[in-house]
């Protein structure tokens, strides 16, 4: 890859090898006066990621200095994210980096896309307009994407190869990039180095805190079952009436309840009226979904719920959201807003 491309896609292995070859130690990156612009850009990367959109520069061939700044700003941004080591920030950052790459990748050549794919161990072939990849690679990349169009059944596949348009391939790479960046964080930064970045870190921390306050992130405080989406209410009603739930709905209900903050015990109690209730088995399943094996499962999106016939009684709010958790989150927000309005009225 050209240096310009390495600067635009700094997460590829070739870019990190190149940076290594330049011999900029982390110490130098943090302290060298000559690299002030890389630090400023690195800080911007993180701040922009919180707003959801990292802006990528465009270069001309003579921009060598700018290219280097852009390239080095990436390891600096990772140092900053690692020093703060906040899950919300890390996720936002990985997502924004990946999204920004997607916007560029859409316009790149098929060959560059194929080359980038190889960095993620995907061997694709290209024809004039499309890329072809093995279905196992496709599934690994596409399985986090929940919209129906990404289902394998809605793809063109012949003899094990999935044929995919450039833009779609770029979207799949976005997912792979996000995962790589996320899994690579936090890096181990010695405390004294974080200390040297304190000015940059303070700026980010302030914005992060403000954002968290605005969105009330940090989990739901207490579970308010009056605010559950209709599908979950329906499922709970069924369980109470002794109707057995389909496996997919059991999973949806349990993962939802765990996600909004119910304890395993509380969820077990909810199932306690099932006709085939087996406490030990139920507890095991719920603990599994709640993350006893290492992965906490997120509840399925609305489109998945629809696919499996589990979307029941959708209301007006459902039309505006894509995920049962968003429904709950919005309702909690509405309730809080209305509550504070009432308080204001009373005060008046």
């Amino acid at each position: 890859m050209e240096n310009i491309e390495l600067a635009l896609y700094p997460f590829v292995s070739e870019a990190s090898r190149y940076v290594d070859s330049l011999n900029f130690s982390p110490d130098r990156l943090i302290t060298s006066r000559a690299l002030e612009s890389a630090r400023i850009r690195g800080t911007d990367r993180v701040i922009q990621s919180l707003a959801g959109n990292i802006e990528k520069p465009s270069f001309v061939a003579s921009d060598e200095g700018k290219v280097l700044t852009e390239l080095l700003s990436y390891p600096f941004a990772r140092i900053l994210v690692s020093c703060i080591d906040d899950q919300y920030l890390t996720r936002r950052y990985a997502l924004a980096e990946a999204k920004a790459s997607y916007e560029l990748l859409k316009k790149e050549s098929l060959d560059l896309l194929r080359y980038l794919g190889e960095d993620f161990s995907i061997s694709a072939t290209t024809d004039d307009t499309h890329l072809n990849l093995h279905f196992t690679d496709y599934l690994k990349l596409a399985s986090p994407l929940k919209e129906l169009e990404w289902k394998l059944v809605n793809r063109r596949m012949d003899h094990g190869h999935v044929r995919i348009a450039k833009e779609n391939y770029a979207r799949l790479l976005q997912e792979a990039i996000r995962k790589r960046i996320l899994n690579g964080l936090p890096i181990n930064v010695p405390p004294h180095m974080c200390g040297q970045c304190e000015d940059n870190l303070t700026v980010i921390r302030d914005i992060l805190q403000k954002q968290k306050d605005d969105f009330d992130i940090g989990g739901f405080r207490e579970v308010d079952n009056e605010l559950f989406p209709p599908c979950i209410v329906h499922a709970i009603g069924n369980v109470r009436n002794g109707i057995n739930l389909a496996h997919s709905m059991r999973f949806a209900k349990t993962s939802f309840l765990v996600a909004v903050g119910m304890s395993v015990n509380e969820v077990v109690d909810l199932f306690n009226v099932s006709p085939d209730f087996d406490e030990e088995k139920t507890r095991y399943q719920i603990e599994h979904i709640a993350g006893s094996s290492g992965t906490q499962y997120t509840p399925p999106s609305c489109s998945t719920m629809k696919t499996y016939g589990n979307c029941q009684g959708a209301d007006e709010l459902c039309k505006r959201i894509q995920h049962p958790l968003t429904y709950y989150r919005r309702k909690v927000w509405f309730k809080k807003r209305d509550g504070s309005r009432n308080t204001i009225k009373k005060d008046a």
Partner: peptide, 13 residues
């Protein structure tokens, strides 16, 4: 599961 959905036509649009 995606492979199962493929052969059973589940989610086919």
């Amino acid at each position: 599961r995606e492979i199962v959905d493929y052969v059973s036509g589940r989610g086919f649009d």
